[in-house]
């Protein structure tokens, strides 16, 4: 498959995952189980044809559990009401980590996709304006983009976040974070669009289309913008992991989603305490989910080589896109 198609299919798959995942959760994300604080993961056993071993509490004070291989339990969706099955263990609030992880998938991935949409819309719009208008407007857009690119991303994010109240309803946080990530990411898309359009509109084919009597709007819609689709989607594949990591970082440090809203970032806060992390390492499971999406995106962008050609923008070389080699 060609790169733009691959990226679109991957994004659609992620969207589907975000829609479906929460309804697969066996338990409610907020349901607290008695005597089930920090239960270790109960993986399905091959030797027991996919069932899991029961776990019994041996020391309530130290939160120690023993695996009871003589008692077999079915997978959580079919488990009897009295004996819940925790595939990925439980957290400090005695809640099922597997269910929480599935429920957290939706806000995490939807935020990344929304931010991606915002970034592409804003970046394309400004890129088209910069390339078509030129002159002072072009210079203004480019310098603003330069400023945002030169400042460290997390610093810009922190500065923008500081303009908001510390505590906000989750839906408002979602909207603000989308806006925040879009306003940090747009220069990258803008540069690619601007470079592509400037290159394309100077080409012989654009001249031919204009000579045949096409309007500026027709040239833009049918010839210039389609040429941008490939480069923009390649950038999207690099931006998506960055957005997921940014959500995780912001939520982890307490400036993203509130704890009452499970996202991959807020779930990771369980692992913030070193002592808890050492004793209950399964609280790192959201990190595995973040890694899988990041790694998968890289595979998709780079056609199975896991290392895309990084299109890096050189600071100081105005508007020149340096493609650091082709994927190997």
């Amino acid at each position: 498959m060609r790169l733009p198609v691959r990226v679109l299919v991957w994004l659609a798959a992620l969207l589907l995952l975000a829609v479906v995942a929460p309804s697969l959760a066996p338990y409610a994300p907020t349901q607290m189980f008695t005597d089930a604080r920090h239960v270790p993961p109960m993986p399905p056993r091959l030797e027991a044809s996919g069932r899991v071993y029961a776990v019994t509490l041996t020391d309530r004070l130290r939160e120690r559990y023993a695996t009871d291989a003589s008692r077999l339990l079915p997978l959580p969706w079919w488990a009897p009401a009295g004996t819940p099955v925790f595939l990925l263990g439980t957290d400090a609030g005695s809640r099922d980590l597997f269910s929480r992880l599935l429920v957290a998938t939706r806000p995490t991935i939807l935020l990344a996709l929304a931010a991606l949409l915002g970034t592409i819309t804003l970046g394309t719009l400004l890129g088209v304006i910069a390339a078509r208008r030129g002159g002072l407007i072009d210079a203004l857009i480019m310098r603003t983009g330069d400023l945002l690119l030169v400042l460290p991303v997390m610093v810009v994010a922190l500065l923008l976040r500081s303009a908001l109240p510390l505590v906000l309803p989750a839906v408002e946080i979602f909207a603000w974070l989308t806006l925040l990530l879009s306003s940090v990411g747009w220069p990258i898309v803008m540069r690619v669009v601007r470079a592509t359009i400037r290159h394309e509109q100077a080409s012989a084919s654009a001249l031919a289309v204009t000579a045949l009597g096409a309007s500026r709007g027709h040239l833009l819609r049918r010839h210039l913008l389609p040429a941008c689709a490939g480069p923009v989607l390649a950038q999207a594949g690099l931006l998506l992991p960055a957005f997921i990591a940014a959500e995780a970082s912001l939520s982890f440090i307490g400036l993203g989603f509130p704890d009452t809203w499970p996202t991959w970032g807020t779930l990771l806060r369980e692992a913030a305490d070193v002592n808890a992390l050492v004793r209950f390492p399964w609280t790192l499971v959201p990190a595995a989910a973040i890694f899988l999406v990041t790694f998968g995106t890289r595979l998709v962008v780079s056609d199975g080589h896991a290392m895309p050609g990084t299109t890096a923008v050189r600071p100081g070389s105005a508007g020149r896109i340096v493609r650091e080699g082709s994927p190997r």
Partner: peptide, 12 residues
């Protein structure tokens, strides 16, 4: 190894 490490955010 480098494909692995480039995919892990510094936080993780």
């Amino acid at each position: 190894a480098s494909a692995l490490f480039v995919s892990i955010p510094s936080l993780l």
